[in-house]
Design a protein around this nucleic acid. Structure first.
Lengths: 213, 213
DNA sequence: GTCGTAATTATGCAAGCGTATAATTGTTCG
DNA sequence: CGAACAATTATACGCTTGCATAATTACGAC
């Protein structure tokens, strides 16, 4: 019984890095940050742990890249299908609906986000990623809000637009969070209706009709 | 130089348990869950680590109790001073303001909450505490909303009341979260104004005037 | 007082962690 | 075909972790 050395295939750097990032996200989502050990990540990505050090000089570096990937994916999922809509109001409604619907609303995704938050509070680079993601999303939301209001003949000034975007973003974030953290607390389409009504009330726009398109 | 054994005082069980819980919360808030090791907690509480096992049969038990204490404290802080107000609308406004103002809005507090969330997703007992805290807060909020609307001559039905409470709760949660996670992103009283306007818009009530009382 | 006991300290252990480094092996290029 | 090189595996080290257990000590009861 000679201990046989494991066979392996060579892969490009991008492929391997991506696989490791994906494995990291899976593990954090499933078992929290504690479960995402170097050994577990390597096993999930079907490599040995030494390889991680070959692509990331430290584990924090890997975690940081995973965070970036997760946040980018979240924003992308949320805005998918928004641009196709005809009117600005419909685009806004589509964004609101997507924000509180799977796959964006998801227990694992919220857990992932929460797991990262403490890293964010301690690492300056991760804090920068966090701030950038947040402002990026809010700016795009603000753009949609301004367009929808102008479409309705009401152009808000800059200060108003900012405040409206913050408020709408808060509703969306709050519902996203609660929907992910307590999935069984809400009915199937309940969050969608509440989100449209609430954002509509804040902006004084009828979004519920616009969402049906 | 004989290694001198450490002097100590005997304390009641309640005192020590509370001290350990407080030390745990401090550490999680400051350094995240990773920093809250048994040894660090003991040092912060000025005892040796063995004592923790004397009061809590496992570390998770201590963490669970700390979570309970934190959530209870948060709710208590939020509702402090609400009952004293004259009208229901003023009470509601006071609650909204308190929810997005320090000490409730606080980076460490949000970090603490996020740090617990992953424990919550994995431990059934912690999930129960989480759900209970959330529903408790939302029910009290719903009570205030119904009272304020009735005061204004508009009594919502049960379904409406529930949806309004969920929406207002989402605004509050979202602003609480963002205010705590990105303190520098908002002006001093900005969150207060936005919260009052947004909740007021959802309920179609003027809360900004009521908050001045 | 001194005695009993519960509170507290001291010490140790096995497991898991991130990281470092040396040994192999697949791949590419002449 | 063979040599060079990077990708990958294998192994090990030092540290920290949560938990266990034995040794001490403060404090109240009598």
């Amino acid at each position: 019984m000679t201990g046989e050395r494991r066979k392996f295939r060579r892969e490009g750097a991008d492929t391997r890095r991506q696989a490791l990032v994906l494995a990291t996200l899976d593990l954090i989502a499933e078992q929290g940050v504690r479960g995402a050990t170097v050994r577990a990540i390597a096993e999930r990505a079907d490599v040995t742990q030494g390889l991680i050090r070959h692509y990331f000089s430290t584990k924090d570096e890997l975690v940081q890249e995973a965070y970036l990937a997760h946040m980018a994916g979240l924003t992308e999922q949320t805005f998918a299908g928004v641009a196709e809509r005809e009117t600005a109001r419909e685009r806004l409604a589509a964004l609101v609906v997507a924000s509180v619907t799977p796959p964006v609303v998801d227990s694992a995704s919220v857990g992932l986000w929460a797991g990262f938050l403490n890293h964010v509070r301690q690492d300056a680079r991760m804090r920068a990623v966090h701030a950038q993601t947040y402002h990026d999303f809010r700016d795009r939301l603000e753009g949609l809000i301004v367009a929808a209001l102008e479409e309705a003949g009401r152009g808000p000034d800059a200060g108003q637009a900012r405040r409206l975007a913050i408020a709408c973003n808060a509703v969306i974030d709050g519902l996203w969070l609660e929907g992910g953290a307590l999935p069984e607390a809400f009915g199937p389409d309940e969050l969608t209706g509440i989100a449209l009504t609430a954002v509509g009330a804040i902006l004084q726009l009828d979004l519920e009709e616009a969402a049906k398109t």
